[in-house]
Amino acid sequence: MILKQLHLHNFRNYDDLTVDFAPGVNVLIGENAQGKTNLLEAVYALALTRSHRTSNDRELINWQAHEAVLSGSVEKRTDTVPLELHFSAKGKKAKVNHLEQSRLSQYVGQLNVIVFAPEDLSLVKAGPAVRRHFMDLEFGQMSNKYLYNSGQYKTALRQRNEYLKQLRSRRQSDRVFLQVLSDQVAALGAEIIVARAAFLKQLEKWAQVIHGDISLQKEQLRFQYATQVTLDDDLKVEDVYQALLELLTKNEDREIDHGSTLYGPHRDDLIFLVNDKNVQTYGSQGQQRTTALSVKLAEIDLMKEQTGEYPVLLLDDVLSELDDDRQTHLLTAIQNKVQTFLTTTSLSGIARQLINAPTIFRIAHGTLEKETEETNETKTDEQVDSSSETE
Rank of each mutant, 00 (worst) to 15 (best):
T291K: 03
L293F: 02
L293R: 01
S294N: 11
S294R: 08
V295N: 00
V295K: 02
V295E: 08
K296G: 08
K296E: 07
K296P: 08
L302G: 03
M303Y: 01
K304D: 05
E305K: 02
T307I: 00
G308D: 08
E309A: 03
E309V: 05
P311N: 15
P311Y: 13
P311V: 07
L313E: 03
L314T: 06
L314R: 03
L315E: 01
D316H: 04
D316F: 01
D317I: 12
L319A: 02
S320R: 06
S320C: 05
S320T: 07
E321N: 06
E321Q: 14
E321D: 06
E321F: 09
L322S: 14
D323N: 12
D324Q: 11
D324N: 09
D324S: 12
D324F: 05
R326W: 14
R326L: 14
H329T: 06
L330M: 11
L331P: 05
L331A: 12
T332A: 04
A333C: 08
A333R: 13
Q335W: 00
Q335G: 05
K337A: 03
V338R: 01
T340Y: 09
T340N: 08
F341G: 12
L342Q: 02
L342M: 02
T343G: 07
T343V: 07
S346Y: 01
S346W: 05
G349I: 04
I350R: 08
I350P: 00
R352A: 10
R352G: 04
R352S: 10
Q353C: 01
L354R: 11
I355A: 10
I355L: 06
I355Y: 01
N356D: 14
A357W: 07
T359N: 02
T359V: 10
I360M: 14
F361H: 15
R362A: 14
I363M: 13
I363N: 13
I363G: 13
A364P: 08
A364G: 09
A364T: 11
A364Q: 15
H365A: 15
H365Y: 12
H365S: 13
G366S: 04
T367L: 06
T367S: 11
L368F: 04
E369G: 11
K370S: 14
E371M: 13
E371R: 09
E371N: 07
E371C: 08
T372Q: 10
T372V: 06
T372N: 00
